[in-house]
Write a protein that binds this DNA or RNA. Sequence first.
DNA 1: CCTATGAATTAGGTTTACCTAAATTAGTCC
DNA 2: GGACTAATTTAGGTAAACCTAATTCATAGG
Lengths: 230, 230
Amino acid sequence: MGARGAAANTESVDNYLKAILTLGGRDEARVTIKALAERLRVAPASVTNMLQKLAAAKSPMVDYERHGGVQLSAAGKRRALEVVRHHRLIETFLYEVLDYPLEEVHEEAERLEHFISERFEERIAAKLGHPKIDPHGHAIPTMDGVMAARESIVLADVVEDGSFVIDSVSDRDARNVRVIEACGLTPGARLRVKKLAAAKGYAVRVGRSAKVFDLSRDVAQDVRIVRKGG
Amino acid sequence: MGARGAAANTESVDNYLKAILTLGGRDEARVTIKALAERLRVAPASVTNMLQKLAAAKSPMVDYERHGGVQLSAAGKRRALEVVRHHRLIETFLYEVLDYPLEEVHEEAERLEHFISERFEERIAAKLGHPKIDPHGHAIPTMDGVMAARESIVLADVVEDGSFVIDSVSDRDARNVRVIEACGLTPGARLRVKKLAAAKGYAVRVGRSAKVFDLSRDVAQDVRIVRKGG
DNA sequence: CCTATGAATTAGGTTTACCTAAATTAGTCC
DNA sequence: GGACTAATTTAGGTAAACCTAATTCATAGG
């Protein structure tokens, strides 16, 4: 027994939906219980329980099948995008209006995203001039739940040298954000990548500066880029 | 059994502490379980339970005695004032920076006060120039937990006619806030009070305008004033 | 002094979201 | 086809914060 409930929009539910959205990727693939458990840092059993609850709700938030992973339902996707919108608007607001250091906006937004009202969302959006991307370069979903897709690749996956433009930076690890910002790798910045023979990391020259940074694989994992000329 | 726990700073705990602070009044009198239950809209039994938990914590938040009511401990008072500071700073911020209608700031602040970080608090305080009172006229406790006391009386308690200045307006009832604001009864405004023969309400003339408003007892209960000349 | 009355407390339950431990299922490898 | 393994599910449990119902306590009146 145990897992039949109403499935209100609690903080926890929001976090599950957001995780399913991002893990599912652009093609909205089904997500495994294990992946969710790792992302959310809870036991797999807890995930199964929650998903059963979410699937059994009056208007189900997910499409879940025993041993078959999950996917967001229309309602689930709508809510997930709303939370992402909140998160990114708050990040932008903290950075632009309250002068937060870039590496601190994520943690605060992660908490507040669950508790702000529609009015709050609308007001900060207005104050910011209805921005389309947040300070990390991520697209901010529109009020009616549409998120602009962008073609980009992870810096760590680059196999041949070349010229690129920074698309976005993951905000999940504050330390990495700090390192990345210190290198001048902000969204829109140009960079040249040269795979090092030493295979230790990723040699990167930012803009027209002469300086070359040697990024660790861990850091390079958190940078998304777009090819730009030769 | 049932009520022995750690007593973390949850949203609920914060609300109990805040309620004890305000119900205790300026002289920090002991507060009854019943009064708390009514204020927090929970059953008296729930209050007893929570207070036992708060009193039994490593660093007790309250001084509680069976059948003897409660009082905040030093630690409890510190936390309560911090939450009040959060609340009033947020209200000020919503009103000044995000252009909220006055009657809506309370509800939003009531939720957010529990979730903002020290940094957020510090940043909005700085942005606002470290204000000492919020838009309702309430004193904002300082960072180190000191709240300026002000002598003021409730408009509904006025027995003889006279000239007054608005001290503050309760924010608990949005509808009343709206009415009060519509009359121009904002903190600092002058007013003359004339007890009506009809005993229906409170006749009030604001500033030098000729208009006289007839306030209901319910509304008059939410306005605090200070005597000002004859 | 003893009993009504209302306040406070105890006892026992519920819900949410987590946990661990013990099944079960699916898929691979010989 | 059986065995092993990894993923998933079930079962049973915990803690927080609430609830209702039943009991105890304090005190004011007769």
